[in-house]
């Protein structure tokens, strides 16, 4: 494996994303307004509840969880599904398939640059604002390191899910529909719209074993040091779960893609 080839793709991605500085600025600004909305909503909810802690989550925990889930969402967002359907329509996919690199690998690395930029320009500023607003409620210790590792795993899980969904689209020729189903399911079951801690017991048991949790809930739980993740002993099972899903999804995704790629029909050219 030649790392230089991969990093060249990352660099190209970084340069490409820097072309859309305005978009990044607006995203950041929107995140801040979103932060305000989430703040007011949950403040009202917690004020009405009468207790400070609900299901082991304080108001501050919930705030941090939801805001950073949104920031992670912006950071992890990939348009694999859209890009793939467009490049099939235009025929560009042929060129990508001919590249001297596996298609999945190529796709992953060409998105990596965008991730780097999004992380630096939207995630980190949002993180800092959250730190200020909550008066340093996030513990600044080794949990940050655990969090970063978990986020990288989350990125890989997310990529695999995106690729599988994009591959499904090759068969259905319906991009919007499949994409909205994916987005809805992922956002709900990963804890991005409401923290998983609030889910009813029965539902929680199912959700805990689904891959979606590995994307948002696990990194954020580790960051907030909930569910016994304040020690490495608690963190390791979380990593285990993420890694297990990475292996499963990578194998399924690769096989599925291999099967699908023979099916691609490009009109014209």
């Amino acid at each position: 494996m030649n790392m230089r080839r991969h990093l060249a793709l990352t660099r190209a991605g970084i340069m490409e994303s820097l072309q859309y500085r305005l978009s990044t600025a607006v995203t950041l600004f929107a995140n801040l307004i979103y932060l305000v909305l989430v703040y007011f909503l949950w403040k009202a909810i917690y004020d009405s509840a009468g207790t400070d802690v609900v299901n082991g989550m304080t108001f501050t925990d919930t705030m941090i969880y939801l805001i950073l889930a949104t920031a992670l969402f912006n950071f992890l967002e990939m348009f694999v599904v859209w890009d793939m359907s467009r490049s099939i329509q235009s025929g560009k996919i042929i060129l990508d398939l001919l590249k001297p690199m596996k298609f999945r690998e190529y796709t992953f690395w060409s998105y990596s640059g965008g991730h780097v930029i999004q992380f630096v320009l939207t995630f980190i500023p949002t993180f800092i604002v959250v730190m200020i607003v909550t008066h340093g409620a996030i513990n600044m210790g080794v949990n940050l390191l655990y969090f970063i590792v978990a986020t990288i795993f989350a990125l890989i899980v997310n990529f695999n899910m995106e690729m599988i969904v994009a591959t499904i689209c090759l068969y259905t020729e319906s991009t919007w529909g499949i994409n909205i189903v994916k987005e809805t399911v992922v956002l709900l079951l990963s804890g991005a719209s409401i923290p998983l801690a609030f889910f009813p017991e029965a539902m929680r048991k199912i959700v805990d074993y689904l891959p979606f949790r590995a994307v948002y809930d696990i990194p954020l739980t580790i960051l907030l040091q909930k569910d016994g993740t304040d020690t490495i002993k608690g963190v390791l099972p979380m990593y285990g779960l993420q890694l297990a899903w990475i292996v499963i999804l990578t194998i399924c995704g690769t096989l599925f893609w291999k099967h699908a790629v023979r099916k691609i029909t490009v009109n014209g050219g």
């Binding site: 259905t172 020729e173 319906s174 919007w176 529909g177 499949i178 994409n179 909205i180 189903v181 809805t184 399911v185 956002l187 709900l188 719209s193």
Partner: peptide
Amino acid sequence: ADFVISTIGMIMTNLS
């Protein structure tokens, strides 16, 4: 097919 899937998608959004 696209129509059916999109409709399902819309229902899913509301359900979620």
